Simulated assay, not measured.
Amino acid sequence: MTDESESMETTNDESQKPESQGRMQILDHALSQARKKIISSAKLQLFQKHLRPIHKKNPEVLKRMHMQLTKQLDCHISEEVMLMFAEEQMEKILDDLDGVIASQKDNKEEAWRPSGDPQQDSRVYNISVKVKQKAQLQHVLSQLEQQNTLLRDHVALRQKKLLGTKRTVDSGISKWREINEAATSIPADELVEFVQKYGKIHRHHTMIPWDDDIDVLVNGSQKEAMSRALESLPEYTLYRPPLVQWKFFSKNITRSKRPFAWPYIDIFFFGENETHIWDKANRYTQLYMFRKADVFPLQNKPYQGSLQPVPCNSPRVLSRTYDPTLCTTSSYTHKEERSKDPGSRKTVKCESLYRKFPFVFRETRDHYVMETVKVGDCILYQTKAALPCWTESP
């Protein structure tokens, strides 16, 4: 398209003035004409003048560049105008204005005319305007006061709930520390703690957000020592059936028909030989069997504000049973003591949850491992941990 043809097209378009159209159509037509004039001003001769080396070398390339630029410019301007119309609700405003004007066509009331006294005219006009503004402001003020009252009540309720949650969390941490102190009376080399078989500590430093129980694994030879330590806590009850895992829970929780109440801690016991340990519960023996070299010596890792003993070769222990890159919801609800609907179980890549939940990221350094707990790019805290047993210096 030549500059002359562009100019002729613009002139022809300008001659086609919209008649008997609404203001929105008039505005749209005017902006369309303005856009075409802007595009037509980007003449090919200007490109040829300022980009002379390219024009001499390959005039067709320059011409295609010019055409592409003008098309993109036209597209961007159109998009910006449409966005402006949408944000400012121009079509509704102008349609309302058309309606107001149309409704006044048959109005026989005489329009206001100045009296000749500027002060009097100004006073009469301003009084009516100010009265309307006052009424509007009073209405806005009333609405704001109502909103402030609702907001104040909502904030007070939220503060009350947060205080209650804080007390619950503080109480839980305090009770967990009591349990931890009681459990430390058992020899450290005989006690191994797993939270969902160690996943909570390794992956989150806290409860897995989509889980609802805690598992502890204790040497079977320490059953009586564990029983004495836990039964010495007056606010808790230990349920110890002979063939399955024990359950440890608060006395303040109302029980249903079962001899225990959720939330509780499941206490499993392991057997051992010279090379391995395993879960003594028959249904878990093959699933939870680990090399002693991967478990001992135990390392202390952060969990819920305290340090808990965990295996020294955690990746191998975890990969024995789980895929550490996958996050999976539980197949069992401990609160209701029943299996979940198989269709409700979800498995996703853990990395897809990094921006929603706290995860632990590790960086091995010369003499320690830096563990960083983050939600997305937000660092919650960092802590130093011992080197895993498989990388310790000799």
Rank of each mutant, 00 (worst) to 15 (best):
L217K: 01
M370R: 14
S32R: 15
C75N: 10
K197L: 12
Q68S: 06
V131M: 07
R52P: 01
D377V: 06
L217I: 09
H139T: 10
D212Y: 02
P315D: 15
Q143F: 03
L380V: 13
E88D: 08
A34K: 05
K384Y: 02
F290C: 01
K335N: 08
A293D: 15
Y239N: 03
I265F: 14
P187K: 04
E272R: 07
K166Y: 03
Q143I: 06
T237S: 07
Q45E: 14
Y236I: 04
M289H: 11
K49Q: 05
I38W: 09
A34R: 05
N313T: 11
S174W: 00
W262T: 03
P311V: 03
L83Q: 09
R255P: 01
V375N: 06
Y354W: 15
G220Y: 02
G172W: 01
P302E: 02
H76S: 07
E235F: 01
Q68P: 00
R338G: 01
P234G: 03
T11S: 13
T2W: 09
H55G: 01
L243V: 07
H276T: 11
F270M: 03
D170V: 02
T328E: 13
K92N: 05
Q119W: 13
R52F: 02
K37E: 08
F85L: 03
Q25W: 04
I127T: 11
G164P: 05
S331A: 12
S174V: 00
Q196P: 00
N58Y: 07
G343Q: 14
S232V: 01
M370T: 13
V129F: 04
F260W: 15
G343Y: 06
Q382D: 11
I101A: 08
Q16F: 15
E79T: 12
K105E: 04
S319E: 15
L144K: 12
L326A: 12
S142G: 05
V129R: 13
T333C: 15
T168Q: 07
V131I: 10
E80V: 12
R283P: 00
M84N: 11
E19C: 03
R320C: 13
E19R: 05
Q299L: 09
G305F: 08
C350P: 00
S41A: 13
K92R: 10
Q104M: 07
E231Q: 11
S78Y: 02
V61D: 04
E190S: 05
D215H: 06
K280L: 10
L51V: 11
F361W: 12
E224M: 05
E87W: 07
E19P: 00
Q25Y: 09
Q138M: 08
